[in-house]
Design a binder for these strands. Structure first.
Length: 846
RNA sequence: GCCCGAGUGGCGGAAUGGUAGACGCAGGGGAUUCAAAAUCCCCCGCCGCAAGGCUUGUCGGUUCGAGUCCGACCUCGGGUACCA
């Protein structure tokens, strides 16, 4: 009797699917299409369990939809540009291109044994010149439509390595290699005008009904629409007024100072002949560029000596400070400080001895602010203190609206709607990215490369032995002639942010080898992505950039209008985690151990007991990693696939456990044994309980279908366990058992496609499960004749009764009150209220 | 700092505001076996001899009824614009 042997059968079925071209996406006008896409991987070198989970989820959907009759597109590619390739070149020598393509080859070889229903004929990497050349072509289109511009922006500058650092390369304000304090430095950089789309990107979120609410909320907050006011504060020295932006003008009475950004032109100008201020501004530059660093840094400032007149209380003069917490990028780069109603302003005021004045109190609690700022919700009523606009007790929102009206009618300020969303800086001073197809000419200025010269290819002859951008010091690549006047010119040496690459790959998959970015007929048929699947870490940047990029592509004629929201449905899956095993060395430093080196709480080699640290995201440094290749080698792909889908809801993290994988393998073996047992039954075996098995089968079809549709694969698997147990216990006729077994194979096929084919073939099924229509449940087989109703007394469950499904409530009441247990618990007390929820529960209130 | 989530037995988890703990893992008992593996059957939240009581991170609220809704908090995770 052959036992379950995935090592033999999995390659067999993969070859069979290939021969049948089962997964080649075909544009078929006669059938509805379904485009399922998982976020493509970065080719780091090896696949990890997180990839297995991500791609198995997509595969379950793809195989299920194919069985439901859809023409399915399920492609795969590589997000292949990025820093790690350059870091590898710096650390180990070699070339980013070699490193990247070698990694892709390894990962493709690791991925194929998973048996994913991917159309590999559409594969590409973003570092293929055929891909990035089309991206350059679109960049030029964007330039023509005014979607691109250049401006100055700050970067993290490593003064020792003389190079720009990514945020993750800055550790505690210092460069990761040089350990030198990082400086903020301005460079001229390329930007996409995403902020022109702020309102549209915000407003369109409402229509993304099949996106998680949390992602829409995160994007809404990120875009950050606010209504405020711009108010010019007039300088007492007669200089140009300082324009401040505020979303809380109702607190104007409490204004006690003005704070401007160190990058504000006024601050810069004053610093020219104010050494103390110049030093202060230089100090504020020694901070990295992240928002978190800015927000967490101690609030510091310097008095410029200038004063302004309070706009509604001309007798009051407010000092002008430079504050390290004022962002030049948001609003006007200048704010008024109201310490009483803003904790950061209050801290600042206390530090520098500035005035604190309430603009309002909580009604009936007229207490001046001390150490804690009074910041009630905008919907809460407050009592304004002799407010210039004549407001008394009102909500802050009412106060804001009234104040803006007051300022506008008197010409003191202008109401403004602003967005937090900033334009997308795409310039990177790095080699391994898509070159920006632009040329700098002394005579013509900035000129786009001619499209017939695309792609602007990355030169291969570069070295990484010194820090900085090799393109910038390349002997010949930089030098070129101006496409307009033919004079000597310089090529742009910035490359594009890798988020650009991933902002349109979904569109490219619809025509992956075309000589234009997209082909309209293909895009018309395949777009949009019906189901997009990926990590929650991409909730804001990648998804927002893609939404912008699709709009820009539409403007340039590369996508139909329908595709400006490219992802109809989004699912965000959790991580795969694992326990961490730690010991300590002689000096007390932690030493981590791979799961396979630990057995029974001890290090296998030394017998040393390990400390178990609760599950965390798998990482190489903590050695809590499980290699899918090992798992497939030991148990087969189906075990890996079933396990990652089985335990946790897909949107949550799942913990990989060796015991769980072992148990999965055993279960699949049991299913195979059951299949063999049924096949070997005598054909004329008499049946008992055939109807029960048929009912269980229809219930399983219904429930598995529902749970797959609802992305609750862990529940699909629980239902499959139940159905398997029902078959196992059944004594039905052979034909009935065989029918149940074949339906089980179909229902399991999205998760464990190889085993499903084995079962199907063994039961004499025709063709491939992969090409068989999804089974349908008979609704008549799903309803039960009776229901069990729990009976509560005062909300506590005390008894239960079994009644016909459609029994009227009045009859249910009678039966419930006549129940022995109910009589006992009531002990003669009068019934005050009786609640009967049909088919659900009875609650007796005494 | 700010924005967004998550928290239920020994473990992963299930539960349209209606029997908390489906399904699985681990554990315990039994059958089979010379023995073991594999397989099969039974038990399995906590306290209690029992009756019963307690129990969904903490505290409070709404409700006939709260894991689910509301408020405050705690812990962990994701993002924070140059990691991808």
């Amino acid at each position: 009797m052959p036992s379950y042997d995935p090592a033999k059968s999995e390659p067999h079925w993969q070859a069979a699917w290939d021969r049948a071209n089962a997964f080649t996406a075909v544009r078929d006008a006669a059938r509805p299409k379904y485009y399922v896409l998982e976020m493509f991987p970065y080719p780091s070198g090896r696949i990890h369990i997180g990839h297995v989970r991500n791609y198995t989820m997509g595969d379950v959907i793809a195989r299920y939809k194919a069985a439901c009759g859809f023409s399915v597109l399920h492609p795969m590619g590589w997000d292949a540009f990025g820093m790690p390739a350059e870091n590898a070149a710096m650390e180990r020598g070699g070339h980013p291109k070699t490193w990247t393509y070698d990694n892709i080859a390894v990962m493709r070889d690791q991925m194929k044994p998973l048996g994913l229903s991917i159309d590999w004929s559409r594969e590409f990497a973003t570092c293929d010149p055929e891909y990035y050349g089309q991206q350059q072509s679109m960049f030029i289109d964007f330039m023509e439509k005014g979607l691109v511009y250049r401006k100055n922006a700050v970067v993290n500058w490593d003064p020792v390595d003389m190079t720009v650092l990514a945020n993750e390369q800055v550790i505690d304000g210092k460069g990761w290699r040089s350990n030198a304090p990082v400086e903020r430095r301005e460079l001229t950089q390329w930007f996409f005008r995403i902020s022109d789309f702020s309102e549209e990107l915000l407003e369109a979120l409402d229509r993304l009904e099949n996106w998680p609410a949390k992602v829409r909320l995160m994007q809404e907050n990120w875009i950050g629409k606010s209504r405020g006011i711009e108010i010019p504060f007039h300088r007492t020295d007669g200089g140009a007024p300082i324009l401040c932006y505020s979303t809380r003008p109702d607190t104007m009475r409490g204004a006690s100072f003005i704070a401007i950004s160190p990058e504000h032109p006024l601050a810069q100008a004053l610093a020219a002949d104010n050494a103390e201020l110049a030093t202060f501004i230089a100090e504020t530059r020694k901070m990295d560029t992240t928002e978190a660093a800015m927000e967490k840094a101690e609030k510091k400032g310097l008095d410029t000596g200038l004063t302004v007149t309070h706009p509604v209380d001309p007798g009051l003069k407010l000092p002008v400070w430079v504050g390290n917490f004022v962002l030049m990028d948001y609003g006007t780069g200048a704010v008024f400080g109201c310490p009483a109603h803003d904790q950061r302003d209050l801290d600042f005021a206390h530090r520098y001895g500035l005035a604190v004045r309430n603009a309002f109190y909580l009604p009936g609690n007229e207490v001046e602010v001390g150490d804690v700022a009074l910041v009630p919700a905008k919907t809460e009523k407050v009592a304004y203190i002799d407010h210039f606009a004549g407001i008394g007790v009102a909500t802050s929102q009412e106060g804001i609206d009234a104040t803006i009206g007051y300022f506008e009618t008197r010409g003191l300020g202008q109401g403004q709607v602003k967005y937090r969303l900033r334009d997308w800086g795409i310039s990177r001073q790095r080699y391994w990215g898509c070159p920006i197809p632009v040329i700098h000419c002394d005579a013509c200025g900035v000129v786009a490369e001619k499209k017939e010269n695309l792609p602007v290819r990355l030169p291969d002859d570069v070295s990484f032995d010194i820090p900085g951008n090799p393109l910038d010091r390349h002997p010949t690549w930089r030098d070129c002639s101006c496409p307009r006047c033919g004079a000597k010119a310089r090529r742009e040496t910035d490359t594009m942010d890798t988020f650009v690459d991933s902002s349109w790959y979904y569109a490219r998959f619809t025509a992956p080898h075309a000589a234009t970015p997209t082909v309209m007929a293909e895009a018309e048929y395949w777009m949009n992505v019906d189901q997009y699947i990926g990590g929650i870490e991409h909730a804001i940047l990648h998804l927002l950039y893609s939404r912008f990029f699709a709009r820009a592509m539409h403007i340039c004629g590369h996508l139909p209008e329908r595709a400006i929201e490219p992802f109809d449905a989004l699912f965000t899956q959790g991580m795969v985690t694992h326990e961490i095993y730690m010991t300590r060395d002689a000096r007390g430093r932690p030493v981590y151990h791979l799961p396979e080196d630990v057995e029974g709480g001890k290090v296998r080699a030394t017998g040393q007991a390990v400390t178990v640290i609760p599950s965390a995201k798998m990482s190489k440094s903590k050695k809590n990693v499980v290699d899918p290749v090992d798992i497939i080698h030991k148990y087969g792909a189906d075990t890996a696939r079933w396990f990652v889908m089985s335990d946790s809801p897909p949107e949550r993290d799942v913990e990989w456990t060796a015991a769980g994988a072992e148990a999965t393998f055993k279960h699949l073996g049991r299913v195979w044994m059951l299949c063999e047992r049924i096949a070997s039954l005598p054909d004329d075996k008499p049946g008992k309980g055939d109807d029960d098995l048929i009912r269980a089968m229809h219930r399983a079809i219904h429930e598995v279908t529902q749970t797959i549709e609802g992305f609750a694969f862990n529940k699909s698997i629980a239902k499959l366990y139940e159905f398997t147990n029902a078959i196992q216990k059944s004594d039905a006729a052979k034909a009935t058992q065989r029918q149940a077994m074949m339906v089980l194979a179909q229902l399991m096929s999205p998760m464990v496609p190889h085993l499903a084919e084995d079962i199907w073939a063994h039961q004499g099924g025709a063709g491939l499960v992969a090409e068989t229509a999804w089974p349908r449940a008979d609704p008549a087989m799903l309803v039960d004749d009776t229901v069990t109703l729990p009976i509560q007394i005062n909300g506590k469950r005390r008894a239960e009764i079994v009644v016909p499904r459609d029994l009227p409530a009045a009859e249910v009441e009678k039966i419930a009150l006549a129940d022995d247990a109910v009589i006992r618990f009531l002990a003669g007390q009068p019934v005050r209220k009786l609640i009967v929820v049909p088919g659900r529960i009875v609650n007796v209130v005494v």
